[in-house]
Amino acid sequence: MDELTTAFVGAAALILGADPALLEIVALSLLVSLSAVTIAALLGLPLGAVLAALRFPGRRVMIVAVNALMGLPPVVVGLFIYLLLSNSGPLGALGLLYTPSAMVIAQTVLVMPIVVALAHELLSSLHEEYDELFRSLGLRPAAVLATLLWEGRFGLVTVLLAGFGRAIAEVGAVMIVGGNIAHLTRVMTTAIALETAKGEIAQALALGLVLLVLAFTVNLLVALFRQAAMRLAYG
């Protein structure tokens, strides 16, 4: 209880005091996770639409695989990306290990299955609704995909939020490929892990509360934006 109180006081002090070290960590957390979600969106949403709208051999297997990959442990993703980016690995020459880029790559791999699977789920029901209309109008496959993505835009925002939630909260992958280097690759979750390892439980909890506030703020902003946009689209 004592430590909980200290944690709340500490969190309040961190937020209100706009602690520069904290701001740096928060900024990097947002940058890494938003970049990962952006890339996962650019690649994953079209892939989700393809799985929803087109019929091709291997599609069923892909859907099962993507759904299974949603449960991938972040540490496993971290190790996999580490082996790729290690100086002894195939992509070592890029020099990306222990940089924010490596963290973006790892989180993209983590987030992608969620984006693809949930987008597929959402767009499948849309496709079912509109399939005959699209065929009646003679739409080409590319136009079908674009239309599904646009029609599903409000639901897809929620899909991306789910992906963002996974990215911002995970610690295993960014710890391994980022190295938790101060001022370079230290994000909220790895800082929490470090404070825990140092036995600074109250400080770790305080950072956890800041992370919660951060996630809450992002979700709130998106919800407000979405509401406004929906009012425009539905009247």
Partner: peptide
Amino acid sequence: MKPSLSGLFLLLCAAT
């Protein structure tokens, strides 16, 4: 809704 490719590029650069 989707950021442009140049925006993505900026993000990637900023991340490194």
